[in-house]
Design a protein around this nucleic acid. Structure first.
Lengths: 110, 110
DNA sequence: TCGGGTTATACCCGAGTGGGAATAACGATG
DNA sequence: CATCGTTATTCCCACTCGGGTATAACCCGA
C-alpha cells in the first residue's frame, strides 16, 4: 500500500496540462460529448467547456473536435492530436511513476 | 532545447507537496529564516508562514524548526525530517525527469 | 533594561475561480 | 418544419487565495 501518489503537470509553450485536463479528455473520448463528460466527472459544463477551450488554444491545431447541432444534438471527440496527447501524457506518467516508485515508498514512511 | 518542463506534486496522507513548498524549504535552509526565505523568493511573509505551517501539519513531527526572539531576532531551520523530505523530493524529481525525458521531447513537438 | 529582527496572528480587500442559471445557435432526424 | 440535445456565451454571485498592513510576543546581546 503506497500512501504517496504522484501527479504530473507538463508545461508546454502554450499552457499547462495536468491530471484534470487529461481526465476530461478521456471522459470526452468515452462519453462522446463535452456535456456528457462534464456530467460524468461531476463538473459543470461551463468549466468543462473552458478547459477544452484552453486545451485547444494550447496547440497549433485543436485537440477536441466539436460539433453543435445534428443527430443527438451534436457532440465532441478527440482529434488525432488529442489522442496523441493523451497517450503521450500517459506514457510520461507511467515512466515517471515507475522510476519514482522506490523513492516514493521511502518518502511515504516519513 | 526541451520546450516541455515537468513539475511534480506528491500527495501524502497529510497534504500535497509541490515545487513551491520545496523551493521554500530550500530558501529557509539557505537564508536561515522564514522571513529571509520569503524575501529571497519575492513572496510575502504571510504566505511563507502559511506554507510552513501547512508543511509542519503534513507530517507527524515538524519539518521546519522555528525560533522567535533571540540573537538576530530568531530564525528557522530544517529539521532532520525536513532535510530528508527535501532530498527525497529531489530524488523523485530527478528519477521521474530522467525517465520521462524521451517521451517529453516527443510530446513537445506536438 | 532596551533595541532589533524574527515569529505569530488578525484584519481588510482586490483578483481570480468556478458554480448556477439563462439564452442563443446549431443541424440531423423524424 | 418542429424537436431535441448539444455547443456556445453571457450574466450574477459565493468562495478562496494571497497581498498588504498592523500589532503583539519573543528573547539574545549590547
Amino acid at each position: 500500500m503506497t500512501e504517496a501518489a504522484l501527479s504530473l503537470r507538463i508545461d508546454l509553450a502554450g499552457g499547462r496540462i495536468g491530471p484534470g485536463k487529461i481526465a476530461l479528455l478521456e471522459a470526452i473520448a468515452r462519453e462522446g460529448s463535452i456535456s456528457g463528460a462534464a456530467r460524468s466527472l461531476g463538473m459543470s459544463y461551463r468549466r468543462a467547456w473552458e478547459l477544452v477551450s484552453a486545451l485547444n488554444e494550447t496547440f497549433a491545431s485543436p485537440v477536441v473536435a466539436k460539433l453543435a447541432g445534428g443527430s443527438g444534438g451534436g457532440g465532441a471527440s478527440l482529434t488525432l492530436l488529442g489522442q496523441e496527447l493523451l497517450t503521450g501524457y500517459r506514457a510520461i506518467e507511467a515512466a515517471a511513476l515507475e522510476a519514482a516508485a522506490l523513492h516514493l515508498q521511502e518518502l511515504a514512511r516519513l
